[in-house]
Amino acid sequence: MTGVAWNAKELTVGQLAERSGVAVSALHFYEAKGLITSRRTAGNQRRYTRDTLRRVAFVRLAQRLGIPLKTVREALAELPEERTPNRDDWAKLSSTWRAELDDRIEQLQRLRDDLTDCIGCGCLSLDRCPVANPHDRLGREGPGARRIDTRLCPPQSAYCSPPQPAGPTP
Score class of each variant (00 low, 15 high):
E106C: 11
S125V: 14
G139R: 05
Q107V: 04
Q107P: 00
N86A: 11
D114H: 11
A99N: 11
C121N: 07
G142C: 07
S94D: 08
D102A: 14
T96L: 10
L138V: 00
G120A: 01
I105R: 00
D89L: 06
I119P: 01
G139W: 03
S125N: 09
W97C: 02
K92A: 15
W90F: 15
C121T: 10
D88Y: 04
S94G: 05
I119L: 08
R87S: 09
Q109N: 12
L124M: 01
R146T: 14
W90G: 01
G144T: 07
E141D: 11
T84F: 05
D127K: 08
S125E: 08
D136R: 14
A132F: 05
R137T: 13
A145R: 10
K92F: 09
L108P: 02
P143G: 00
G122S: 05
P143F: 03
Q109E: 15
E106S: 12
D88V: 09
D89R: 09
T116I: 11
G122W: 03
D102R: 13
S94F: 12
R128T: 13
R140C: 00
A132I: 11
D136K: 12
D114M: 09
L115T: 11
D136I: 04
R128K: 12
G142Q: 08
A91T: 13
R137H: 09
R112P: 00
L108Q: 12
G122Q: 04
S94M: 10
K92G: 11
A132W: 03
A145E: 10
